[in-house]
Simulated scan of single mutants.
Amino acid sequence: MRVLCAIAVAVLLSAPAYAQMPNVNLMPEVKTKTQEEKDQDAITDRAYKNSLSKIPDAKGSSDPWGVVRSDPPKAAAHPAKPKTRTGSSTQPGSSTQRSQ
């Protein structure tokens, strides 16, 4: 009885590992194209390349909201104020003084 249980456990444990094995076909059926199929592929490729060359280059603006805006785009924001040694952004020599 123990042997039968051991075999059943071994089969159940090996089933998931067997399912992960790749299905490799060592002798695939090799399909070669006939001359007519090769000619048809060449015609199709030439037609595809010709259709790609007919697409015009996009030279317009890439801003999709450009027609919605009434103002021209703003320039960059003002630069940040320089910081002093203490880390505050007030100018050295300003009229503000600390009260003690």
Results as ranks from 00 to 15, higher is better:
11 V>M: 04
74 K>H: 03
25 N>L: 01
57 D>S: 11
70 S>H: 07
68 V>G: 01
9 V>A: 11
3 V>D: 14
29 E>F: 12
10 A>Y: 10
89 S>E: 09
78 H>Q: 12
63 D>W: 04
39 D>L: 01
12 L>G: 11
55 I>T: 11
37 E>T: 10
74 K>P: 04
43 I>E: 15
15 A>N: 03
42 A>H: 03
95 S>H: 10
30 V>F: 02
44 T>S: 09
52 L>T: 05
20 Q>S: 07
51 S>N: 14
97 Q>S: 14
47 A>G: 12
87 G>H: 10
44 T>G: 09
49 K>T: 08
38 K>W: 05
30 V>E: 14
74 K>T: 13
43 I>V: 13
29 E>W: 11
79 P>L: 13
65 W>A: 04
85 R>N: 15
59 K>I: 04
48 Y>T: 12
59 K>L: 14
29 E>I: 15
56 P>Y: 04
37 E>R: 02
63 D>S: 02
37 E>S: 05
66 G>N: 05
1 M>A: 06
91 Q>H: 06
90 T>I: 09
5 C>D: 13
100 Q>T: 07
84 T>Q: 15
38 K>G: 13
1 M>P: 00
32 T>I: 01
27 M>E: 13
61 S>V: 03
50 N>Y: 12
70 S>M: 07
90 T>K: 05
71 D>S: 09
88 S>Y: 02
13 L>D: 02
63 D>Y: 11
88 S>F: 04
27 M>F: 15
50 N>V: 07
14 S>R: 01
80 A>W: 00
64 P>E: 07
27 M>H: 15
48 Y>C: 07
67 V>H: 05
53 S>W: 03
65 W>P: 00
89 S>Q: 06
95 S>R: 04
56 P>F: 03
3 V>S: 15
48 Y>V: 10
54 K>Q: 15
89 S>Y: 09
81 K>T: 05
69 R>F: 01
58 A>Y: 10
17 A>R: 02
93 G>P: 02
67 V>A: 08
42 A>Q: 09
7 I>W: 09
69 R>P: 00
17 A>T: 08
54 K>H: 14
96 T>Y: 07
41 D>V: 10
17 A>W: 01
34 T>E: 02
40 Q>K: 13
68 V>K: 00
63 D>P: 08
42 A>Y: 11
13 L>R: 04
29 E>S: 06
66 G>V: 00
39 D>N: 03
94 S>C: 14
12 L>R: 01
